[in-house]
Design a binder for these strands. Structure first.
Lengths: 229, 229
DNA sequence: CCTACCGATCGGTAGG
DNA sequence: CCTACCGATCGGTAGG
């Protein structure tokens, strides 16, 4: 909670005035002494650059320059470029899981059906992929070739947690005849349809994220058979 | 026709015995004098490596070594590494378009309906993405960040040709009520579902390409309404 | 297509 | 976190 509040605060005022930071102990020059925040800045800059240019095409110098550091300084915070990439992915997954839980929580009071739950999951997924500050998950999806097998295994566990929430929802819709075909393949195809939006979605043109969620629901989920129920 | 035949012939016997080539004028040492084929070998090796390791992580030395050349020699055939990437993408798209035409041609005699046509298109698309020798299109899909704007525009034209065949089919199914939601978004979501299979499909486990096509059809296309028609 | 090579860039480190 | 630096690698070229 404290952690989340600090993150929100930092994110909201950081772009405004980067010069003076009245918070924290003003010892020394009251400048450059805000330890942990530089690490966060590095991860954020890395996420943005890795997404825009790709991991291999982004140099650690690019990242350092983006946060006003000199070329060797990122290695004071991260032991390698790969560790920075992993931090982006790990943080992205943990944030996505937290946001998914929150989205479901917000929808819980109305005791929604499986279709309504899936819409919440899909809508949140589009937000995680395409919403403001959404560089982390696209990096995880498209740069996983550049992490080690051990790191990939750790992330796969988080992805399993993320997808575990979808499984009962999809299964229920499958059993109700509203999603057709093998549910395992349906899940893979649906995630593909959503994840690919990173490639073509343009927030300025195209539809809103709500339009996207509506279109996905219409395409994948059939109306419940009026005969039974 | 001649060109296509030559390509087919070359592709079919090349993997067998790479040593002696009885064809062509056996002047000189009857070795290393088969001009144009080295270019094809380079493109094939580049496609395989670009897919496996990514464009940025593949060095021109890797590609040279893969075809038994020395480090500077690929630049005798291609003026830059980027030109090699573009050749992979361009050849991949032209081949995909040709295969799509052939697949439709083969299905034509039975005068199939829109749903049957879509299945042919989807099945061929999976083959292009996941079938034997299918490195070209995945490279085009996942490495487009590394080509120039001009090259991207040329490829977009080819992709337009490829997708133009899908449009009337999807529109017909949409008008028949068998595909729900805005047809433009449906097309993007469907291509996403198919293209993402590159990330998870494992030919050894999982389903066959026919199973995949069946699952996609079941998920996207609803049974025609029995009331009307 | 090989030989020999170059300038640039990169990830990373020592030592403060 | 900066300064100064290193070894390795890379795309590309001249000149045959």
């Amino acid at each position: 909670m404290d952690q989340a509040a600090a993150r929100t605060h930092s994110a909201s005022h950081a772009p405004a005035i980067a010069a003076k930071r009245p918070r924290g102990r003003p010892r020394k020059t009251a400048d450059e002494r805000d330890d942990g925040n530089r690490r966060v800045e590095l991860v954020n800059a890395a996420a943005r650059l890795f997404r825009k240019k790709g991991f291999d095409a982004t140099s650690t110098r690019d990242i350092a320059a983006a946060v006003g550091m000199h070329s060797g300084s990122p290695f004071y915070h991260f032991k390698s470029k790969g560790a920075l990439l992993y931090a982006v992915m790990d943080e992205g997954m943990r944030s996505a899981i937290a946001r998914q839980s929150a989205a479901l929580q917000a929808a819980a009071p109305s005791a929604p059906g499986a279709a309504a739950l899936l819409r919440v999951l899909i809508r949140n997924h589009f937000d995680v992929l395409l919403g403001p500050g959404s560089d982390f998950i696209p990096v995880m999806l498209y740069e996983s070739r550049s992490i080690t097998a051990r790191q990939r295994a750790s992330l796969a566990k988080l992805q399993g947690d993320y997808e575990a929430v979808w499984e009962p929802v999809l299964k229920a819709l499958s059993q109700a005849g509203q999603i057709k075909g093998p549910v395992k393949l349906a899940r893979l195809l649906i995630f593909g349809a959503l994840n690919w939006s990173v490639q073509w979605f343009d927030a300025r043109k195209d539809a809103s994220l709500d339009d996207l969620a509506d279109a996905a629901m219409a395409l994948f989920v059939q109306a419940p058979s009026p005969a039974r129920q």
